[in-house]
């Protein structure tokens, strides 16, 4: 059996073909299905939506009236709900940049120490992120139930009866209450990104810093934070991108209410297009979201395209 050696090649099988695919065409043939699919069902609808945004159209009838930039002007100058929605998106995004990111970083730092049960903790903090957001919204709507919900029952039990309120039916509290749900369901994302980032920082840096007499805070400031620079770009970009895309939680928890106080661009676009049949105006709203997100995503996409 001495003929069997590692790396031995099977005999070359030469097949004769009537015609050969030119070598230069091969990469494009591999790319063709994805490109065509992506162009037909993502890029084309996007451009179609841009086109529609310059018209007054109900989305159904054959007649469309060209109105130029009027839809866009209305968003910023006339429609108060649209401006409120934009403002709510901005508040939501600022919150998303600060809170889940900060908690996620703290959790990652705590869990990176191989503390007892750290795998179990990681599973617990990440688990809400795998649930359908519709289910998350309904679970928390029950938690916020004014009479029987966990939140008010707890507040009453610890003597804070005056804090108990309708939460999701309260004009001031509905958006913050929805945002708390968002923190619960999303803190796992920055946590696992930061954990991956922390694990990529070489232990040698920490040893060197310790030998040089750096204390824990100095090590965090001069080793951990610079080491996480790339992770910050990804985590913060995703926070903004997702902050402007938000839909499911608001739709299931408040339906944009009470009144229209919790409308965000994503839900207002949906209501305008599919409930009030203002397809042109809704498309303009959708393009406002898309433009903001695409511009903010540039550093993220550049980071992803490298390497």
């Amino acid at each position: 059996m001495s003929e069997i050696t590692l790396g031995a090649r099977r005999p070359v099988i030469v097949r004769r073909r009537r015609w050969r695919i030119p070598v230069t065409a091969i990469p494009y043939l591999f790319l063709a299905p994805a490109t065509l699919w992506y162009a037909a069902f993502l890029v084309y609808p996007m451009l179609q939506s841009l086109y529609v945004s310059f018209f007054d159209w109900d989305g159904l009838s054959p007649t469309m009236t060209f109105v130029g930039l009027e839809n866009y002007i209305n968003i910023f100058a006339v429609d108060e709900v649209a401006r409120l929605a934009l403002w709510n998106n901005i508040l939501w995004t600022i919150g998303a940049l600060a809170l889940p990111t900060f908690f996620g970083l703290m959790l990652a730092l705590a869990l990176n120490r191989r503390a007892p049960a750290s795998t179990l903790f990681r599973t617990i903090f990440y688990s809400p992120a795998v649930l359908p957001l519709v289910a998350v919204g309904l679970i928390w709507a029950w938690m916020y139930n004014p009479h029987f919900g966990v939140v008010n029952v707890t507040l009453k039990a610890v003597g804070l009866r005056s804090w108990a309120n309708g939460w999701l039916s309260n004009y001031e509290m509905a958006l913050p209450a929805t945002f708390v749900t968002f923190i619960w369901s999303h803190v796992g994302f920055p946590m696992i990104f930061y954990l991956a980032g922390l694990q990529a920082i070489s232990k040698d840096y920490y040893e060197a810093a310790t030998i040089d007499g750096a204390n824990a805070f100095q090590r965090f400031r001069h080793v951990t934070m610079p080491g996480l620079a790339e992770t910050h770009v990804i985590v913060l970009s995703l926070a903004v991108i997702n902050g402007f895309k938000v839909f499911d939680l608001v739709y299931t928890m408040t339906y944009g209410g009470p009144g229209r106080s919790t409308q965000v661009l994503g839900t207002w676009m949906y209501f305008q297009t599919f409930q009030y049949y203002h397809a042109g105006y809704g498309s303009a709203l959708a393009w406002v979201i898309a433009a903001i997100v695409l511009v903010i995503a540039i550093p993220y996409i550049r980071r992803m395209s490298r390497g």
């Binding site: 609808p45 179609q48 402007f244 895309k245 393009w287 997100v293």
Partner: peptide, 11 residues
């Protein structure tokens, strides 16, 4: 990765 679903829905 950055395209919001909303911008394709109606078409």
């Amino acid at each position: 990765l950055a395209v919001p679903v909303q911008v394709t829905l109606q078409p």
